[in-house]
């Protein structure tokens, strides 16, 4: 695995200058790829982002709230996204939003008593009201706790928004997701970076 990421690691040279030069070149290449991927995704998704933002703004205007969820790095994005709406920078109006990964008592109770696959769907069932917005983030689209959460959200009349990566995974096949944004990359890191830019823009469109 390392070989494909950093072929020079396995090269015979042990010259420090050469290593640093190679590291610098690979870093520059990755940053260029991060920028290129954003441009590709925004060119393709600009109209759909606007449609999604309008639907979210209508929900907020009618008293809806936003519930965000994800696993691992995506859980931190879910919390960041929720906090961006709840405690925005500048003069933007705060909107009701919360992450479903914030309460470790709830997460461990559900995992221990029922199973990890229900940690988000049970919370959607507990908190979700018709008119709310459910936002789930995954880099693979295959998280087995996200799919039932979207199903539960759809059943309860929530607007559903999904972020995924690669080929979209099982989230791309889910009939329960109203607005799905796929970042076509094989790198989890590049996917997360572009998803961050996507939800930043979505927030700007919703609040503007």
């Amino acid at each position: 695995m390392t070989e494909s990421l950093y072929p020079f690691l396995h090269a015979p040279s042990s010259d420090v200058d050469e290593l640093v030069a190679q590291v610098r070149a690979s870093t520059v290449a990755k940053v260029h790829e991060a920028v290129r991927l954003r441009e590709e995704v925004f060119e393709r998704e600009r109209e759909r982002l606007a449609v999604c933002a309008r639907a979210m703004a209508e929900r907020f205007a009618a008293g809806g709230r936003l519930l965000a969820f994800g696993n691992g790095g995506s859980s931190t994005d879910a919390q960041d996204l929720a906090s961006l709406f709840l405690n925005p920078p500048g003069e933007a109006r705060p909107l009701p939003a919360f992450g479903l990964t914030n309460d470790i008592a709830v997460i461990t109770a559900l995992s221990n008593d029922v199973g990890f696959d229900v940690v988000f769907s049970r919370q959607v069932a507990a908190f979700g009201r018709k008119g709310d917005i459910a936002v789930g983030l995954s880099t693979s689209g295959n998280s087995t706790n996200l799919l039932p959460a979207f199903d539960e959200a759809r059943r309860r009349g929530l607007l559903t928004v999904g972020f995924t990566g690669g080929d979209g995974g099982r989230m791309a096949e889910s009939p329960a997701i109203d607005h799905l944004f796929v970042v076509p990359s094989a790198s989890v890191h590049r996917i997360q970076e572009t998803q961050t830019a996507l939800y930043h823009v979505l927030w700007e469109l919703v609040t503007s």
């Binding site: 390392t2 420090v16 890191h189 961050t196 830019a197």
Partner: peptide, 30 residues
């Protein structure tokens, strides 16, 4: 813009993680 700063920071720490492993694996070099 704090949102732009965040986007750059995410890439920065992804790369920091990768490069840390590069130098860990090349223990004898750097």
């Amino acid at each position: 813009d704090p949102l732009v700063v965040k986007e750059v920071h995410v890439t920065t720490y992804h790369l920091l993680w990768e490069l840390t492993h590069v130098f860990l694996e090349r223990a004898g070099v750097a």
